[in-house]
Amino acid sequence: MPAQFGAGLLRVDLGPGVVAGFTTRHGGVSPAPWSSLDLGTSTGDDPTRVRENRARLEGWVGAPVAFAAQVHGDRVLPLGPDDLAEWSAGEPPAAAGEADGLVTGTEGLGLGVLVADCVPVVLADPVARVVAVAHAGRKGVALGVVHRALDAMVARGARPGDVRGAVGPAVCGRCYEVPEEMRDEVAALAPEAWATTDQGTAALDLPRAVLAQLAARGVDAVHVDRCTRTDADLFSHRRATEAGVTTGRQAGVVVLT
Protein backbone atom coordinates (compact mmCIF):
# COMPACT_ATOMS: atom_id res chain seq x y z
CA MET A 1 0.00 0.00 0.00
CA PRO A 2 1.25 3.53 -0.72
CA ALA A 3 2.20 5.69 2.23
CA GLN A 4 0.54 9.06 2.66
CA PHE A 5 2.70 12.14 3.09
CA GLY A 6 1.92 15.80 2.74
CA ALA A 7 -1.77 16.45 3.27
CA GLY A 8 -2.98 14.56 0.23
CA LEU A 9 -0.18 12.73 -1.57
CA LEU A 10 0.02 8.94 -1.71
CA ARG A 11 3.69 8.05 -2.02
CA VAL A 12 4.97 5.06 -4.00
CA ASP A 13 8.48 3.59 -3.86
CA LEU A 14 10.29 3.85 -7.19
CA GLY A 15 13.75 3.39 -5.76
CA PRO A 16 16.47 5.37 -4.00
CA GLY A 17 16.80 9.02 -4.95
CA VAL A 18 13.26 9.21 -6.32
CA VAL A 19 10.15 10.82 -4.83
CA ALA A 20 6.89 9.75 -6.47
CA GLY A 21 3.21 9.60 -5.68
CA PHE A 22 -0.36 10.47 -6.53
CA THR A 23 -2.42 13.30 -5.12
CA THR A 24 -5.94 12.99 -3.73
CA ARG A 25 -8.43 15.86 -3.70
CA HIS A 26 -7.39 16.85 -0.16
CA GLY A 27 -4.99 19.47 1.11
CA GLY A 28 -5.75 22.42 -1.17
CA VAL A 29 -7.57 25.74 -1.10
CA SER A 30 -10.24 25.42 -3.79
CA PRO A 31 -13.92 25.57 -2.74
CA ALA A 32 -16.67 23.30 -4.02
CA PRO A 33 -17.11 21.88 -6.59
CA TRP A 34 -13.31 21.52 -6.94
CA SER A 35 -12.73 20.87 -3.24
CA SER A 36 -9.95 21.11 -2.60
CA LEU A 37 -6.56 20.30 -4.21
CA ASP A 38 -7.48 21.09 -7.82
CA LEU A 39 -4.27 21.11 -9.90
CA GLY A 40 -5.86 21.66 -13.31
CA THR A 41 -5.81 24.89 -15.30
CA SER A 42 -8.79 23.99 -17.52
CA THR A 43 -11.42 23.19 -14.89
CA GLY A 44 -12.89 26.66 -14.40
CA ASP A 45 -11.19 27.04 -11.03
CA ASP A 46 -9.58 30.36 -10.15
CA PRO A 47 -5.97 30.39 -11.46
CA THR A 48 -4.73 31.92 -8.21
CA ARG A 49 -6.10 28.97 -6.25
CA VAL A 50 -4.62 26.48 -8.71
CA ARG A 51 -1.20 28.13 -8.36
CA GLU A 52 -1.47 27.84 -4.59
CA ASN A 53 -2.49 24.18 -4.86
CA ARG A 54 0.47 23.48 -7.15
CA ALA A 55 2.76 25.31 -4.73
CA ARG A 56 1.57 23.02 -1.94
CA LEU A 57 2.32 19.97 -4.08
CA GLU A 58 5.79 21.33 -4.77
CA GLY A 59 6.31 21.77 -1.05
CA TRP A 60 5.39 18.14 -0.42
CA VAL A 61 7.80 16.76 -3.04
CA GLY A 62 10.50 19.38 -2.53
CA ALA A 63 10.73 20.51 -6.15
CA PRO A 64 8.95 22.52 -8.85
CA VAL A 65 6.57 20.30 -10.82
CA ALA A 66 6.16 20.70 -14.60
CA PHE A 67 2.97 19.75 -16.40
CA ALA A 68 2.12 19.34 -20.09
CA ALA A 69 -0.97 20.46 -21.98
CA GLN A 70 -2.46 17.00 -22.44
CA VAL A 71 -4.19 16.23 -25.74
CA HIS A 72 -4.86 12.45 -25.57
CA GLY A 73 -1.97 11.64 -27.87
CA ASP A 74 1.34 9.80 -27.50
CA ARG A 75 3.94 12.58 -27.68
CA VAL A 76 6.55 12.56 -24.90
CA LEU A 77 8.24 15.89 -24.24
CA PRO A 78 11.80 15.92 -22.88
CA LEU A 79 12.61 18.50 -20.20
CA GLY A 80 16.03 19.62 -18.98
CA PRO A 81 17.96 22.25 -17.02
CA ASP A 82 16.42 25.19 -18.90
CA ASP A 83 12.97 23.91 -18.02
CA LEU A 84 14.00 23.57 -14.38
CA ALA A 85 14.95 27.24 -14.37
CA GLU A 86 11.66 28.21 -16.01
CA TRP A 87 9.49 26.17 -13.64
CA SER A 88 11.46 27.44 -10.65
CA ALA A 89 10.71 31.05 -11.56
CA GLY A 90 8.17 33.16 -9.70
CA GLU A 91 5.55 32.81 -12.47
CA PRO A 92 5.99 29.33 -13.96
CA PRO A 93 4.10 28.44 -17.15
CA ALA A 94 0.79 26.60 -17.01
CA ALA A 95 2.18 23.91 -19.32
CA ALA A 96 5.50 22.90 -20.86
CA GLY A 97 3.90 22.18 -24.23
CA GLU A 98 1.39 19.82 -25.83
CA ALA A 99 2.20 16.24 -24.87
CA ASP A 100 0.86 13.29 -22.91
CA GLY A 101 4.20 12.27 -21.48
CA LEU A 102 7.22 13.99 -19.96
CA VAL A 103 10.74 12.66 -19.45
CA THR A 104 13.83 14.08 -17.75
CA GLY A 105 17.20 13.21 -16.29
CA THR A 106 17.43 16.56 -14.52
CA GLU A 107 17.56 16.37 -10.75
CA GLY A 108 15.19 18.61 -8.84
CA LEU A 109 12.61 18.95 -11.63
CA GLY A 110 9.31 17.26 -10.88
CA LEU A 111 7.17 15.82 -13.66
CA GLY A 112 3.41 15.80 -13.24
CA VAL A 113 0.47 14.24 -15.08
CA LEU A 114 -3.12 15.45 -14.57
CA VAL A 115 -6.13 13.12 -14.47
CA ALA A 116 -9.72 12.79 -13.32
CA ASP A 117 -10.49 9.21 -14.50
CA CYS A 118 -7.65 8.53 -16.96
CA VAL A 119 -4.63 6.54 -15.79
CA PRO A 120 -1.65 8.43 -14.34
CA VAL A 121 1.63 6.56 -14.81
CA VAL A 122 4.92 7.43 -13.09
CA LEU A 123 8.19 5.75 -14.05
CA ALA A 124 11.76 5.85 -12.77
CA ASP A 125 15.08 4.18 -13.43
CA PRO A 126 16.97 4.90 -10.20
CA VAL A 127 20.17 3.46 -11.69
CA ALA A 128 20.30 5.53 -14.90
CA ARG A 129 18.64 8.45 -13.10
CA VAL A 130 15.81 9.00 -15.58
CA VAL A 131 12.12 9.56 -14.79
CA ALA A 132 8.94 9.95 -16.81
CA VAL A 133 5.18 10.34 -16.54
CA ALA A 134 2.38 9.40 -18.91
CA HIS A 135 -1.30 10.30 -19.26
CA ALA A 136 -2.99 7.08 -20.38
CA GLY A 137 -6.61 7.66 -21.26
CA ARG A 138 -8.57 5.56 -23.71
CA LYS A 139 -6.81 7.05 -26.73
CA GLY A 140 -3.43 7.05 -25.05
CA VAL A 141 -3.67 3.37 -24.17
CA ALA A 142 -4.60 2.53 -27.74
CA LEU A 143 -1.76 4.67 -29.11
CA GLY A 144 0.77 3.20 -26.68
CA VAL A 145 1.75 6.38 -24.84
CA VAL A 146 3.29 4.25 -22.07
CA HIS A 147 5.56 2.58 -24.64
CA ARG A 148 6.58 6.00 -25.98
CA ALA A 149 7.45 7.14 -22.45
CA LEU A 150 9.59 4.05 -21.94
CA ASP A 151 11.25 4.57 -25.32
CA ALA A 152 12.12 8.13 -24.29
CA MET A 153 13.65 6.82 -21.06
CA VAL A 154 15.68 4.16 -22.88
CA ALA A 155 16.96 6.83 -25.27
CA ARG A 156 18.38 8.56 -22.19
CA GLY A 157 20.13 5.48 -20.83
CA ALA A 158 17.40 3.67 -18.91
CA ARG A 159 17.07 -0.11 -18.99
CA PRO A 160 13.50 -1.52 -18.84
CA GLY A 161 14.63 -4.10 -16.30
CA ASP A 162 15.75 -1.31 -13.98
CA VAL A 163 12.63 0.81 -14.46
CA ARG A 164 10.07 0.85 -11.69
CA GLY A 165 6.55 2.03 -12.39
CA ALA A 166 3.36 2.90 -10.58
CA VAL A 167 -0.13 3.01 -12.04
CA GLY A 168 -2.30 5.43 -10.11
CA PRO A 169 -5.99 5.73 -9.28
CA ALA A 170 -8.29 5.74 -12.31
CA VAL A 171 -11.79 4.68 -13.28
CA CYS A 172 -11.94 0.88 -13.02
CA GLY A 173 -13.20 -1.65 -15.53
CA ARG A 174 -16.38 -2.24 -13.53
CA CYS A 175 -17.32 1.44 -13.84
CA TYR A 176 -16.00 2.60 -17.22
CA GLU A 177 -18.96 1.78 -19.47
CA VAL A 178 -18.43 2.37 -23.19
CA PRO A 179 -20.20 1.34 -26.43
CA GLU A 180 -19.33 -2.17 -27.59
CA GLU A 181 -17.75 -0.81 -30.77
CA MET A 182 -15.40 1.37 -28.74
CA ARG A 183 -14.44 -1.53 -26.48
CA ASP A 184 -13.65 -3.65 -29.52
CA GLU A 185 -11.54 -0.89 -31.11
CA VAL A 186 -9.42 -0.37 -28.02
CA ALA A 187 -9.15 -4.06 -27.16
CA ALA A 188 -7.90 -4.80 -30.66
CA LEU A 189 -4.81 -2.74 -29.77
CA ALA A 190 -4.71 -3.39 -26.01
CA PRO A 191 -6.46 -6.74 -25.35
CA GLU A 192 -6.29 -6.47 -21.55
CA ALA A 193 -8.54 -3.39 -21.72
CA TRP A 194 -11.57 -5.56 -22.59
CA ALA A 195 -13.98 -5.56 -19.64
CA THR A 196 -17.61 -5.59 -18.54
CA THR A 197 -19.31 -3.44 -15.95
CA ASP A 198 -21.03 -4.77 -12.84
CA GLN A 199 -24.23 -4.60 -14.89
CA GLY A 200 -22.74 -6.77 -17.63
CA THR A 201 -22.37 -4.00 -20.22
CA ALA A 202 -19.31 -3.23 -22.34
CA ALA A 203 -16.46 -1.51 -20.52
CA LEU A 204 -12.75 -0.74 -20.63
CA ASP A 205 -10.23 -1.58 -17.92
CA LEU A 206 -7.49 0.92 -18.67
CA PRO A 207 -5.37 0.30 -15.54
CA ARG A 208 -5.15 -3.40 -16.36
CA ALA A 209 -4.16 -2.58 -19.94
CA VAL A 210 -1.41 -0.22 -18.77
CA LEU A 211 -0.07 -2.78 -16.32
CA ALA A 212 0.04 -5.32 -19.15
CA GLN A 213 1.89 -2.88 -21.42
CA LEU A 214 4.48 -2.25 -18.73
CA ALA A 215 4.87 -5.97 -18.02
CA ALA A 216 5.39 -6.63 -21.72
CA ARG A 217 8.41 -4.32 -21.56
CA GLY A 218 9.81 -6.01 -18.46
CA VAL A 219 8.88 -3.18 -16.10
CA ASP A 220 7.98 -4.00 -12.52
CA ALA A 221 4.95 -1.85 -11.62
CA VAL A 222 2.66 -1.41 -8.64
CA HIS A 223 -1.00 -0.45 -8.87
CA VAL A 224 -2.67 2.01 -6.53
CA ASP A 225 -6.00 0.26 -7.00
CA ARG A 226 -8.55 2.96 -6.24
CA CYS A 227 -11.45 3.74 -8.57
CA THR A 228 -11.96 7.43 -9.19
CA ARG A 229 -15.62 6.89 -10.09
CA THR A 230 -16.50 5.49 -6.66
CA ASP A 231 -13.86 6.99 -4.34
CA ALA A 232 -15.01 10.38 -3.00
CA ASP A 233 -11.41 11.22 -2.03
CA LEU A 234 -10.53 11.47 -5.73
CA PHE A 235 -11.67 13.65 -8.62
CA SER A 236 -13.77 11.95 -11.30
CA HIS A 237 -14.91 13.60 -14.52
CA ARG A 238 -17.43 10.84 -15.10
CA ARG A 239 -18.96 11.11 -11.63
CA ALA A 240 -19.11 14.91 -11.89
CA THR A 241 -20.73 14.80 -15.32
CA GLU A 242 -23.40 12.42 -14.05
CA ALA A 243 -24.10 14.88 -11.20
CA GLY A 244 -24.18 17.87 -13.56
CA VAL A 245 -21.18 19.63 -11.98
CA THR A 246 -17.53 20.24 -12.78
CA THR A 247 -14.53 18.75 -11.01
CA GLY A 248 -10.82 19.24 -10.44
CA ARG A 249 -7.72 17.32 -11.48
CA GLN A 250 -5.39 15.20 -9.37
CA ALA A 251 -1.86 14.33 -10.37
CA GLY A 252 0.82 11.72 -10.53
CA VAL A 253 4.27 13.17 -9.86
CA VAL A 254 7.88 11.95 -9.88
CA VAL A 255 11.12 13.75 -8.99
CA LEU A 256 14.80 12.82 -9.09
CA THR A 257 16.21 14.03 -5.78
Score class of each variant (00 low, 15 high):
V245I: 14
R239A: 15
E242V: 09
V245T: 15
D233M: 09
E242M: 02
Q213M: 10
G252N: 05
T246K: 02
R249F: 14
A232H: 13
R217H: 15
V219M: 04
T228R: 13
R249N: 14
T246I: 00
R226Q: 09
A240M: 06
R229A: 13
V224L: 15
S236E: 10
H223D: 02
T247I: 01
D225L: 06
R238E: 04
Q250T: 07
A243T: 03
T230I: 10
H237P: 00
A216M: 01
G248R: 11
D225I: 05
T230R: 15
D220N: 11
T241A: 14
V245W: 01
T247A: 02
A215T: 04
A221Q: 12
A232D: 15
V222L: 00
A240R: 04
C227A: 12
R229V: 05
V219W: 03
G252I: 02
Q250H: 09
G252F: 06
D231Y: 13
R249D: 11
D220T: 15
V245A: 08
G218H: 08
H223Q: 09
R217W: 12
G218R: 07
H223Y: 07
L214M: 15
S236A: 11
R239G: 06
A221W: 12
T228Q: 07
T241W: 01
R238D: 07
G248C: 12
G248W: 12
A251D: 07
H237Q: 01
Q213P: 04
A251W: 06
A221K: 12
A215V: 00
